[in-house]
Nucleic acid binder design. Sequence first.
DNA 1: GTCTATAGCGGGATAGAC
DNA 2: GTCTATCCCGCTATAGAC
Lengths: 204, 204
Amino acid sequence: MIKEQLPGVKERILDSAKGLFIENGYAGTSVRDIATASDANVAHVKYYFGSKSKLFEIIFDEAFDILIQRVSGIVDSNLPFEEMIEMWITTYYDLLPRYPQIPMFVLSEINRSPEELVKKIAQKNPGKILGYLSERLDEEVEKGAIRPVPVLDLGLSILSLCMFPFMFGGYITRTVSISEENYNELLKEHKQHVVDFVLRGLKP
Amino acid sequence: MIKEQLPGVKERILDSAKGLFIENGYAGTSVRDIATASDANVAHVKYYFGSKSKLFEIIFDEAFDILIQRVSGIVDSNLPFEEMIEMWITTYYDLLPRYPQIPMFVLSEINRSPEELVKKIAQKNPGKILGYLSERLDEEVEKGAIRPVPVLDLGLSILSLCMFPFMFGGYITRTVSISEENYNELLKEHKQHVVDFVLRGLKP
DNA sequence: GTCTATAGCGGGATAGAC
DNA sequence: GTCTATCCCGCTATAGAC
C-alpha cells in the first residue's frame, strides 16, 4: 500500500529519471538507479516505458523543447528589434536558473546519440530561428538602425552568452568557493551586462 | 611480434583512450573498448595504468591544461590591453579547432567527477586568470581607455564567446546540414566578429 | 612484459506468479 | 498492474602461465 501514493508509479519514475539522466547522462544512469530513486522496481520501468532508451527519449525531448520553443516564439514575434533581442536574452536568463543543467545535458547527449535520435531532433527545428532572425536583421540594417552583422555570427554570439554561463556554473561552484546561490545572483546581474553588450555591439 | 610496432602498447593505449574518453565520456567508455581500439588487452591497461579511473585522470588533466595554461600566460603578459584581449580570443580560436571536443569534455566530466578529482583541479587554478584580468581592467578604466565593466562579467563573456561555439559544433553539424569543415571555416571568420564585439563592448 | 582465463559484480531485459 | 526471480551479457579487476 505504501507504493500507492498520489503520484503514481509512472509519474515517479519519470520524475526520478529526469533528475538522474540530466545529472549523470544516459551512460551514467542505470535502470536500477531509476527504480530505486522512484521507489519502484526495474519491471515497472519496462512495463511503463518499454526500455531505458525510450524513457530517455521522452526526457531528452522535453529538455530540448525547453531550450527552443519559447525563444522561437520571441524571435518570430513582431516586437521592435531591440526589444526582441532583449526579450530573447531575458527569456533564457529567466528560464535557465530553473533548469541550469539542461544546456549541458542536451548538447552533451546530442554528441553521443545515435543517428536516429538526432534525425528526430533535426525535424523539429530546421534552423527556423536563424531564418526569422535573418529577416529582422536585414530590415534593421536597411533602416540604418544597426551595423551589418552576419546572422550566424550574431545568433551564435547570443546563444553563447546565454547558455555558456549556465554550463560553466558546475565548474565554478565546484572548484572556486562560490555557492550556487551566489552564482545565481551573479548571473542575474550578468543578464543586463549581456543585453548591453549585444546592443552596443550592434550599434552602427 | 605484430604488437611490437614503434608506438609501444602504453602509448597506443593512451592514444586510444584519449579519443574514446573525449568522445564518449568516462561512463560511456569501457576498458575493453580502449583495449580493442589500441590493439591491446584489458590486462595491459591494468598493468600500465593501474585502473580505468587513473588512466582517465591523466587524460582529463591534459585536456584541462589545454584550456587553461596558454591563456593564463597571455592574460598575465605585459601586452597592451586591447592586444591582450585579442590575443586571448585568437589563442582559443587557433587552439580549439584542433581539440573541438575538449571544452565539452572538460565541463561535462567536471559535473560528474568525484570531489577528490575536483579538488585537484581547484589547486591548479585558484581564479588566477580573473586576478590578472582584474588588475589590467582597473588600470584601463583609470586611464579612461574603456568603460568600467565588472571583471566577472567580462571574463565570463569572453569565455562564453570562445568556448560555446565549439561546444555547439556537434549539434550544428549533426542536425543542420553543415559539414564539419564548413563549420570550421565559419568559426575562423567568427573569431574576428568576437574580437570586434568585445572591443566595441568595452569602448567608453 | 604479455596474454589468457576467470572471479565477482552490476547491467538491461524478461517470464510468470499473484 | 505489480513484483520477484532469473537470464545472459558486459564490466573491472586479478591471478598466474609463459
